[in-house]
Design a binder for these strands. Structure first.
Length: 623
DNA sequence: AAAAAAG
């Protein structure tokens, strides 16, 4: 179901493509669609776990890296079907369940993933547990405005960038996965998916800069699931240790839970088993799940380290590593832990595993750090539609510290009078500290506003309850610290209020990204005062880039302020970031990358400067 | 300086 607005976007996009494609881009696009897209994908190195390298191999030998083999990924031939039999036509949705000719990894001793497929069959991950949500919009997934993502600029840099795909049908993901894509009501891939999935299927490492909510989770889950389905993985060693093939790390527990829920939908009836492990919850249940077999482990770093130390998880046969909110994962607080997990736990080194880093923001310093974990990677950046720009109306208001509460009250009163809450629209209020969150929640509650809160000092049970209560509309106001700033997909957040502004503009980008999701519009209001002066300049720049109305006083403030962290956002106006390898001065003399980079403008459409289509057409319902 | 993440 699309809105008329979306239809008009789609229509105008078609016109533009037909009318005036940039010659180079058009030629490239034509070449890709008629030519390369139909050719076999390059084969990548086959990983054989160290403890199995001396074992005899069956008739299906891994193809040498240089051979022009068909699109077959990672075969270690132990009684598997002939190469290619997992193509769309020959794919069996229940493959492995019977333990027949090609038992997936661990099928024999029951330690691998997929053993409990039979059990999983009964649980339909597509059933909507939050009944209340159904009532709000009806078909949740059908409401996603995919057309809003049709035409945004994409840039890919790196060596030999694989061409993008046009449709899911163009991408050979396998029948079971295609069915799940249908069940999710994904009609066509979003730009990040169109580009990232072929890159990933080609076995390449990837650093991707794209807003959450633009289909990022699927972009890394689909190739992982597909690769595991197609790969002939060896039997896992006996014992209580779980040997996942893929590891997905995220910075907060709730985000890991969310990714796991998604991964379960995507892997339904594929024989691929996803398990989640995070702190604050009893470990025993997680241990039991792990014992029953795991292919894809979704985890927060702390709990994973715990599991590694207990030797209940081994990363020795990891084939895929994905870091969601990767810049966050590699910032000061997290980086040592991540480095330990990736470099000191027996995980195959880069080159022997496939690594994918995703975030909506990628500061150059973090990119440089991240390149330690990547091998000959492709940097992909997608124009910031649906994030801080086009679909979110941003407002900044000057509010003295002492007036914040009453000002918030005014906003909430106005919303209530406009039936804002009656329509189940949700309001997310960000504060700086955990204490501040508690006290604001109490204050709102005692003043008659149905509010709850989420922050790191609440018990995990309370955190999850608060999130459920907010999502369901039972408490349509959520006061949150930055624990809720990243990645969480909460439908119907109509208003994000930065009661306290963050110190880092990237955090602001992530926070306001909780609204304007899935192609819908949203409103973001920030309370600005002298305490947030370091943000004046980057905020003014960001709003300028996003075609937002910048108050004169903020411009003035910005011109007076200097320093205070990165004032320039990393990159130009159209993208969330740029490949740091192209910023010559940064790595001159340190030539890790041996050679030039092709920059391709896949999907860059004619005539649109990134946000021209959306910028002026969207007016706020609240203004 | 604060937030998150193990208990």
């Amino acid at each position: 179901m699309t809105t008329s607005w979306a239809d008009s976007v789609a229509a105008s996009e078609e016109e533009a493509v037909a009318a005036a494609p940039a010659p180079a881009a058009a030629a490239a696009a034509a070449k890709f669609s008629s030519d390369q897209a139909s050719q076999p994908r390059p084969t990548r190195r086959t990983y054989v776990p160290p403890h199995l390298r001396s074992r005899p191999q069956s008739s299906v030998a891994p193809a040498p890296p240089s051979a022009a083999a068909p699109a077959v990924i990672d075969r270690v031939g132990y009684g598997g079907p002939p190469a290619g039999s997992w193509s769309t036509g020959g794919f069996r949705p229940d493959a492995g369940r019977s333990g027949g000719g090609h038992v997936p990894a661990g099928g024999r001793n029951g330690r691998g993933g997929g053993r409990d497929r039979g059990r999983d069959r009964g649980v339909n991950p597509f059933a909507d547990k939050d009944g209340l949500e159904q009532g709000i919009v009806g078909q949740e997934n059908a409401a996603i405005n995919f057309d809003a993502y049709e035409d945004i600029p994409v840039e890919a840099t790196g060596n030999n960038v694989p061409p993008p795909a046009g449709t899911f049908a163009d991408i050979d993901l396998g029948e079971a996965l295609n069915l799940n894509i249908q069940r999710c009501k994904y009609v066509k891939p979003t730009p990040i998916q169109r580009h990232a999935i072929p890159i990933s299927l080609a076995g390449r490492d990837l650093m991707a800069c794209a807003q959450t909510g633009s289909g990022k989770t699927a972009a890394f889950c689909f190739p992982i699931i597909s690769g595991i389905m197609r790969g002939r993985y060896v039997q896992r060693p006996r014992g209580r240790t779980a040997y996942p093939l893929a590891l997905i790390l995220s910075p907060t527990r709730e985000l890991s839970i969310q990714i796991h829920e998604e991964a379960r939908k995507f892997s339904y009836q594929t024989g691929v088993k996803a398990v989640v492990a995070y702190g604050g919850a009893p470990i025993n249940q997680q241990l039991r799940e792990l014992e029953r077999g795991v292919d894809i482990l979704v985890a927060t770093p702390g709990r994973l380290v715990d599991l590694l130390e207990r030797a209940r998880v081994s990363l020795q046969i990891i084939k895929y590593l994905a870091l969601d909110e990767a810049d966050r994962m590699l910032d000061m607080g997290f980086e040592p832990q991540i480095r330990k997990i990736v470099e000191q736990t027996g995980m195959p080194p880069c080159g022997l595993r496939q690594t994918m880093l995703f975030s909506a923001t990628f500061p150059k310093e973090i990119q440089r750090l991240a390149s330690d974990f990547l091998s000959n990677y492709i940097y992909l950046t997608v124009g910031r539609v649906g994030s801080s720009t086009d679909l979110i109306v941003q407002r900044v208001e000057r509010v003295h510290e002492s007036d914040k509460r009453s000002h918030l009250m005014d906003l909430l009163h106005a919303q209530r009078e406009n039936g804002f809450h009656g329509k189940q629209a949700l309001t997310l209020v960000f504060v700086e500290t955990k204490r501040g969150a508690d006290s604001l929640e109490n204050w709102l509650y005692t003043n008659g506003f149905p509010a709850t809160s989420i922050h790191g000092d609440r018990s995990q049970q309370e955190r999850e309850l608060a999130l459920r209560s907010f999502k369901s509309g039972r408490t349509p106001i959520l006061v949150a610290t930055d624990v809720a700033a990243r990645g969480l997909d909460i439908p119907h957040v109509a208003h994000v209020i930065n009661f306290d502004l963050p110190n880092d503009i990237d955090d602001y980008v992530h926070r306001i990204g909780r609204t304007g999701r899935a192609g819908n519009t949203g409103l973001a209001t920030a309370f600005f005062n002298e305490n947030s002066s370091s943000l004046a300049r980057p905020l003014a720049e960001l709003m300028q880039e996003a075609n937002q109305e910048v108050p004169a006083w903020l411009t003035h403030y910005a011109s007076r302020s200097h320093g205070g962290g990165r004032s320039r956002r990393s990159g130009g106006s159209r993208f969330g970031g740029r490949d740091f390898r192209r910023e010559g001065s940064f790595n001159r003399g340190t030539d890790y990358y041996g050679g030039g980079y092709n920059s391709t403008g896949h999907g860059v459409s004619a005539g649109y400067g990134g946000y021209g289509v959306y910028g002026t057409g969207v007016t706020s319902a609240w203004e």
